[in-house]
Computed example of a mutant assay.
Amino acid sequence: MKVPEISRLYHISKEHIRKIIRRFNEEGMASLKPNFGGGRPRTFTEEQRADIVELAQIPPKVLGLPFTSWSLAKIKEVAEQKKLVKSISVETIRVILEEANITYPHTKTWKESNDPDFAAKKNESSNSITNHQKKGG
């Protein structure tokens, strides 16, 4: 096929087709291998990534923080406060830690009471729930 025919058939510019043909003539079959650039370059240096991994492995209490375990959001906050990075997303932290074989579960929160009768009251409320049976069936 001629270059104009290929161009019309595959909706590719004639210049691009000529470039491919020229490259094939110079390099042979190797020119047909895809030449991917590997995606977007990493935003953070290896040193920054290592600092985040190291931070995640230090117990928060050792750093004088008022909590006992890390969440991804807390790692983000502390990494930015300590200027390990200017800004970073929770998802990027998850990826960095995953590459280092460190995983964190989603944070679960619950409320506690300082009421001394809390446990008894909590059990009372669960006893007041009534199971309703379906009618018919």
Results as ranks from 00 to 15, higher is better:
Arg94Asp: 02
Gly38Ser: 08
Glu77Val: 06
Glu80His: 04
Thr109Cys: 07
Ile129Asp: 03
Glu112Pro: 02
Ser128Cys: 08
Glu99His: 10
Glu5Ala: 11
Lys122Ala: 15
Pro59Phe: 00
Gly39Pro: 01
Lys74Ile: 01
Lys2Gln: 09
Glu27Ser: 06
Tyr104Trp: 04
Ile88Gly: 01
Lys111Tyr: 12
Leu84Val: 15
Ile21Lys: 14
Ile12Tyr: 04
Gly38Met: 08
Gly37Cys: 05
Ile93Thr: 03
Ile20Glu: 10
Glu54Gly: 01
Lys108Val: 14
Ala79Asn: 03
Ile102Tyr: 02
Arg23Ala: 14
Ser7Phe: 12
His106Met: 12
Lys19Ala: 14
Lys108Ile: 14
Leu55Gln: 07
Leu32Asn: 07
Val95Tyr: 13
Gly39Thr: 04
Ile21Arg: 13
Thr130Glu: 14
Val95Met: 06
Gln57Cys: 08
Val90Tyr: 03
Arg18Met: 05
Ser89Tyr: 02
Thr45Tyr: 12
Pro34Ile: 09
Phe36His: 14
Ser125His: 07
Glu77Asn: 13
His16Pro: 00
Phe67Ser: 03
Ile17Leu: 06
Thr109Phe: 07
Pro105Leu: 10
His106Arg: 15
Glu46Asn: 14
Val85Asp: 02
Ile102Arg: 05
Ser113Pro: 04
Phe118Ala: 15
Lys33Thr: 07
Ala56Met: 02
Val62Asp: 14
Met29Asn: 10
Glu98Ala: 13
Leu65Gln: 01
Ala30Gly: 06
Trp110Arg: 13
Val62Ser: 13
Met29Cys: 06
Ala30Gln: 14
Lys122Thr: 09
Glu112His: 11
Ile21Phe: 07
Thr68Ile: 02
Thr92Val: 08
Lys134Glu: 11
Glu46Cys: 04
Glu27Cys: 03
Asn25Asp: 13
Ile52Arg: 00
Lys33Ser: 13
Arg8Gln: 13
Asn35Met: 13
His11Gly: 08
Ser87Asn: 10
Ala119Leu: 15
Leu63Gln: 05
Pro66Thr: 00
Lys134Ala: 10
Ala50Gly: 03
Thr45His: 06
Trp110Phe: 15
Glu77Tyr: 12
Ser113Gly: 06
Ser7Met: 06
Ala73Trp: 02
Arg49Ser: 11
Ile88Gln: 04
Leu55Glu: 05
Glu47Asp: 15
Ile12Pro: 04
Val62Met: 08
